[in-house]
């Protein structure tokens, strides 16, 4: 129990500190965007008095540190503020009684879309990378497998937006199997939803799998050359038994760590892939909101994505820690 605490506690603490640092960086970067919320809401032609009034309403007259603390505590409590852009123009007219759309109403449906996409990608990814990783490591002397490994190596290097573009060209432009735009909000049925998910999910899966297979290969090969596997083989155990009882259990830990690291990678990958397929998820919303300078939405999405990234890294770190026997007893 003590080693668990000693392993987990400092890392969780570091993750929390990182989150605070990242939140400050996000807040600061958003502050640096041209103009402020008041001028953005009222537009170019607004008089100085109205801007001043609006700044008071939005509490922009307070010092930055006070606003940061206010924003962060609001964010933690689930009060993410209101979108500057999706407010109705008529309701902005009176600075006092604005009616605009809460950020959460805008962001949460996007979050669920992105989670559906990520889940679909992971469902394809886990069996694919496990099987390919094992097969290419165990039968690495076969000609076909060495070509497969070369293909995997090439796959790790191809940018995800190029994979996406090529899939788009082949499957929705040439073959017309899938729609070129994944507007899943308009999906009428489950099959329609599925056909819109396929290309973006496969793009993410391919990018993740190539990398995972490569890491799996290395760890399986290391296990296969270990003394206990050699002993098991010398004892006369069948190849199947050696692989299932000795190789697989020992290679699964590193594979798990790679999967969690892939989750962190997914944060960046999802932004690019959503833009390629016009998929209405968090990533594309982030890009759109940055271009529209919709600061409350930018802050909320950046915080969510950063939190997932940090938690995934924490998870990978903890798995690595538990797998390392020196850390366990030392």
């Amino acid at each position: 129990m003590r080693y668990v605490l000693r392993l987990v506690l400092p890392r969780v603490l570091l993750a929390i500190i990182t989150l605070v640092v990242v939140s400050a960086t996000i807040f600061w970067a958003v502050e640096l965007l041209p103009g402020d919320a008041a001028t953005r809401l009222l537009g170019q032609g607004a008089t100085a008095e109205r801007v001043t009034a609006m700044r008071e309403v939005l509490k922009l007259d307070q010092p930055p540190l006070q606003r940061y603390v206010g924003w962060l505590s609001g964010f933690v409590r689930g009060d993410w503020g209101e979108s500057l852009v999706s407010a109705l123009p008529s309701s902005i007219a009176s600075a006092g009684g604005r009616q605009s759309r809460p950020v959460a109403d805008l962001v949460l449906p996007r979050l669920s879309n992105t989670m559906i996409l990520a889940a679909a990608a992971l469902i394809l990814y886990v069996p694919l990378s496990l099987i390919l990783g094992l097969v290419t490591a165990i039968y690495r002397d076969r000609k076909l497998v060495s070509w497969l490994s070369a293909l995997v190596l090439v796959g790790t290097a191809i940018p995800e937006f190029v994979i996406g573009i090529v899939l788009l060209l082949v499957f929705s432009v040439t073959l017309q199997w899938f729609p070129p735009l994944s507007l899943i909000d308009d999906a009428q049925s489950f099959t329609q939803l599925l056909s819109m998910l396929v290309l973006p999910a496969v793009t993410l899966t391919l990018a993740m799998t190539a990398y995972a297979v490569r890491m799996m290969q290395t760890s399986v090969m290391a296990v296969m050359e270990s003394d206990y596997v050699r002993l098991a083989t010398l004892k006369g155990l069948s190849r199947r038994r050696v692989i299932w009882r000795h190789v697989l259990p020992n290679a699964i830990g590193p594979a798990l760590r790679v999967t969690v690291l892939n989750l962190a990678w997914l944060i960046g990958g999802v932004v690019l892939v959503e833009v390629i397929f016009s998929f209405p998820g968090l990533g594309r919303q982030l890009i759109d909101s940055i271009k529209l300078l919709d600061t409350p939405v930018i802050e909320a999405i950046a915080m969510i994505l950063a939190a997932v990234y940090i938690i995934a890294n924490l998870g990978a770190d903890l798995i690595a820690g538990f797998l390392n026997p020196r850390l366990r007893t030392g």
């Binding site: 570091l14 990182t18 965007l33 982030l286 940055i290 990234y309």
Partner: peptide
């Protein structure tokens, strides 16, 4: 450095580039 390493590069780069 450990702390800075867990900052998501793409998200922060997007924000910094649009701000600066």
């Amino acid at each position: 450095v450990d702390l800075l390493l867990t900052i998501p590069p793409l998200i922060l780069s997007l924000l910094l580039l649009s701000a600066l």
